[in-house]
Design a binder for these strands. Sequence first.
DNA 1: ATGCCACCTGGGATCGATCCCACGTGGAGC
DNA 2: GCTCCACGTGGGATCGATCCCAGGTGGCAT
Lengths: 347, 347
Amino acid sequence: MGRRVNGDGTGAAELKRRATIKDVATAAGVSRSTASRALTGRGYVATDVRERVLAAAEDLRYVPDATARYLKQQVSLSLGVLVSDLRNSFYARLAAGVGQAARTQGYSLVLAEDGGSADAQVEAAETFVATRVAGVVVTPVSADVTTYLSRHRIPVIEVDRQFAAGACDAVVVDNHRASAQVIGELIGRGHRRIALFIDETTWTTGRDRHAGYQAALAAAGIALDPDLVVSSGWDVDASRAAAVALLRPSSRPTAVFAANNVLAEGVWRAANDLGLRIPDDLSLVSFDDAPWMSLVTPGLTAVAQDEAALGAAAVQRLLERIADPDAGPETVMMPTQIVHRQSTRAV
Amino acid sequence: MGRRVNGDGTGAAELKRRATIKDVATAAGVSRSTASRALTGRGYVATDVRERVLAAAEDLRYVPDATARYLKQQVSLSLGVLVSDLRNSFYARLAAGVGQAARTQGYSLVLAEDGGSADAQVEAAETFVATRVAGVVVTPVSADVTTYLSRHRIPVIEVDRQFAAGACDAVVVDNHRASAQVIGELIGRGHRRIALFIDETTWTTGRDRHAGYQAALAAAGIALDPDLVVSSGWDVDASRAAAVALLRPSSRPTAVFAANNVLAEGVWRAANDLGLRIPDDLSLVSFDDAPWMSLVTPGLTAVAQDEAALGAAAVQRLLERIADPDAGPETVMMPTQIVHRQSTRAV
DNA sequence: ATGCCACCTGGGATCGATCCCACGTGGAGC
DNA sequence: GCTCCACGTGGGATCGATCCCAGGTGGCAT
């Protein structure tokens, strides 16, 4: 018989059994307690002993069992992240920002998507509770998640919108101000018939963007035309259809402010469907700056949020909250920036 | 003194202490063992007892501690996902697909990004080992992750590209065939000077897309012009700069095949920079269909992969592998589809 | 000489759930 | 009357790491 080099054929030597701290202790000739102190760095260990233990751990390819550690310490080194839809670049970038910040702080990420459903959010929250995450970053769709997690004493931070303002930390942007500013610019360029294309006005995002729109019009003495506030469904297809209706020649606005990137995509597609030229036939501005907006011609003027910074701020605030559970809730306001491209013109 | 309704002011009643199975058992007047059987559904429990236990659990808002369960059972109900960059829509959609499939199978997701670094991949893999994930879905950047995880007996599945072919399950597309098909179409429309814009040819993706390009040219009897195979850096800026160089008038190809969506973006931007009209001055085709490609004018013709399906297939294969650790490794080939838009023309 | 403290080590309890096993009970089959 | 088995329950060990505590040593100040 030939020499058997590797029974499993993977080409990589496998461990028969995962090494535990007991194996490391035995190999180093010390007790579990001492091995633990050497490995965690907590408590007294003689220098030579520490080195022996570390060498043994290396040798045995010891990887501490996080589940055991978490069980004993009653909390894990991972954060829960709950967003609506990773295919939306806003959420993807936010999650990336959270992950980046979490990693530098030694935390790993448990990620869940809810598809916009409150029930799915609570379900995901249950998983977070079960796995004893140290905290949760969520873009909520109702107050349920926050309530549920708070009840189980898990620190939560709401990002982008708030459903538990005053009871829960949050990281948001000044939607009202950004919205008013954008509308103000359009008014400054002569627009009077400015439509607001929006999906909801019950969340803080929709509510404040709507209010900012109204405030800017009021400040300029422009009467509010209810027909110009158009509500749409959630996805691109729905918003495209709604936008086609909005843009029919009879009542067409000279400018449209889309309240988020999905709605902007709907308007963009609708304009193409109808053969409308932007900005000649229609000015268009978006809340949220999605990657495609700098690739199309003309580029879309948009209110940009720094999603990575939002995520990082959320993690920072969350860790502060974990460190001091009794501190008062705080709402962090992040800046926005209007990115001017060529999708608007003076009338 | 007034009545103190809620000391913490959150408006949500908090639990003093998380209920354990012992609390549930006590409340239901049974032993821990019986409570466990009632809750997990494994083993005999009298019907009335089961109901009493479930009621008690509900009442106490009992959420089983997953870390304890995992510790005892030596494996968790979560999957690791390791991708390069969530801001790239390909990875975001892939992760979304994995998450979706995992959730329907009762698994949660531990997500990590590596930013394209092999070291970061191994570091993430360590976390996966520590948290005892049931398996890992990875878009590898070297053989290291797979080796590391296999060594620790954690089932892995490579997606998009393979570094451990024959030793590890994988879900990929037929890059060679898709590439050859796209080039064949360009040749069919009269193109002879077709450039391949590519970032690497050492991974299976780059290698096969390159090979398919060569094969299609060879099949048409077109001599390979090494100057038309242009390598670029990883990010948009690098690929944009490289594309500007490629598209200088003296040696301009009539068509460019960009080997992925980032490169396509670089070429698109470079063409804009140079005032080149697509498809009149240049035909452009992309591997990977990013969202922006259907939004720009003209729309980009692209080889589309169904990222959600890739993710789902990866999860399915991974669970099969978990169920049968000794089965031979399998490579699943997923279909691609050429989405024809208006970025090419006959010459 | 005594006390004190810093340093170092190991034993054993502990976290919360699972699960093996022993120990019932009662009905069916012979 | 006996075995056998399905049903049902609780005790206690177990997973792997942490950490409290007791115990030991040696140096230094009083």
